[in-house]
Design a protein around this nucleic acid. Sequence first.
DNA 1: CTGAAAGCGCTTACAG
DNA 2: CTGAAAGCGCTTACAG
Lengths: 346, 346
Amino acid sequence: MNSENTTIYDIASEVGVSIATVSRVLRGETNVSPATREKVQQAIDRRNYRPSSIARWLTSKTTHSLGIILPKLLNPHYAMIFTGAQEEARRLGYTMSLFPWASLDTDAYNPATMLIERRLDGLIVCVEYLPPDHDELVHEALRTLRRFMPVVLIGCVPPWYDFPAVANNNAAMMRSIVAYLTAMGHEKIAFIGGVQEDKDPHRRDIGYEEGLQDARLPYTASYRVYGKGTPEAGKAALEEMLGSLKRDYWPTAIIALNDLVAMGCLETARKHGISVPGQMSVIGCDDLFCAPYLFPSLTSVNTHQQQTGARAVQLLISGEQRRESVEWELVERASCAPFNSEKGES
Amino acid sequence: MNSENTTIYDIASEVGVSIATVSRVLRGETNVSPATREKVQQAIDRRNYRPSSIARWLTSKTTHSLGIILPKLLNPHYAMIFTGAQEEARRLGYTMSLFPWASLDTDAYNPATMLIERRLDGLIVCVEYLPPDHDELVHEALRTLRRFMPVVLIGCVPPWYDFPAVANNNAAMMRSIVAYLTAMGHEKIAFIGGVQEDKDPHRRDIGYEEGLQDARLPYTASYRVYGKGTPEAGKAALEEMLGSLKRDYWPTAIIALNDLVAMGCLETARKHGISVPGQMSVIGCDDLFCAPYLFPSLTSVNTHQQQTGARAVQLLISGEQRRESVEWELVERASCAPFNSEKGES
DNA sequence: CTGAAAGCGCTTACAG
DNA sequence: CTGAAAGCGCTTACAG
């Protein structure tokens, strides 16, 4: 298409100057006489000419385009990360394209062909929900990729990945969540959702266990349920937990992997006539836009996703080889309350 | 970067053939002798060589990259559209970049410079929430843009925009929503949210009025509130409506612009002790992932956003100059119920 | 089956 | 201040 495919040659010949001169005007260089500049600019405006960045890239060896690999945009958590990254990229004059996980092609013959061919100026990869056995494959794919473009990691980045990163410290976060609940008198605290992670010392399970230890509470296997991070999974997981325990042992507080899982838990509690937070507190994570509008409004943890995305772009462009941690902030709403032994047992 | 910036020349000289031959192997052409192909392929693998698509684009005059302009990704409604478009683009071998509305630069001297310079193969523009006075500016900007690349419109596309489009027919949708509520005996039906649209004959207001006429109900100005499409706006709008009306005139059913607004309405109803759907039915639009998990679960309208995005990509690539309508589907949940005059007056 | 050469639309030294 | 020329890394006729 581009019916107007005017080139720098058209402008040059129209004005009667060389393409070098047009190029100078285009890039706002100062060493052009006012008269010439004026004539060239007029021709440019008249033809509505815009130089092809493709040709420019070929010379400059830079495309000013970045990529980001995210598990899925339908979870607003990732949409926030993407938005933060996208806006920062644009602010710095870069374009941002989304690539699915499949782009890494960790099991294909040639990893990340499309990414490399596009000559991106950098790539952000959100490392999350990795099947445990994929860990090394992914690490290897990332190492290969790095030979072609700068890579910055975000998410639950294993500490032995030697990449610049803006990483969650899930363990510390979980520990503070547990502390928040134990301070309110809760002792039967369940943790629902998330894949089984064996290697990452920052993993949530560790933080969960540490938090219990801090409060001198025992770790109870029945209170730890694994599963996917969806509302349906949360619903089913709590359902199953309640079904498998005598009422006396029902947890009085639920820590959900994320707000989606928490939504499912609220639903199950409602179905069983368990009042939240009267009989059971629920806390989520990610602080999605809908958290304040759930019933009861959901206490959650704001993980500053947009800032994470923006920061990753900054690291990518500056080339700093730092590993940073994501800040978090517990947002108190109505779904958590002090444990009330009378109501709790009612 | 790209420390491995091997070029086609490196491979050619390494193997001792011409770059034309390497190019043939690269593109899988058949007119290469097996022996040569083998040697070339080995060199490619050895050096981990990937041809630069930038150089390829310069020749082929096509970039296989598309753009999409969306109001904001943080509303899952748009994230769904983006996901649908992105996945379809990828399936067809294209890349998809998100551009903010500002890219159109409707009020700047040079419209859409960045978009044009990137030589996109096509652009999807979601036309929504246009300030009424911007209508002509946007139309003009789009016309200019079209001289440079194919453009497909989605969203609330005014019918006098002569562009290929996958457009909502909001009027018809609203009319059927009103019919759904009147069939349940509702007579005091409010419509909350949305900007004041004066020109578009497909606008929701018209559908709302037509729906009332269908049921021989009067149009009551107090039941129509304008505002932004956010939860906060929905909350405030219903708040104001209830405050300005005597209890007897409170609406028994609320049609919200979208699920976000509906979330706000549920909140206000809860605050006023109005039971939903006992005393007031609420229906949203967009069927966001959280709709089933609100309390009560929200009846909404599924507008097949992913399909919309995918379809727009297809039109863009095929070049068909069609204008299609988006299908919709009312999803019944718990927030709407037949009007019960006894409870309603209680 | 293979190669030399022109061309894609720019930028960048280098002369003048 | 301006231009001729080389170069960016490919593809594409055109010869052979």
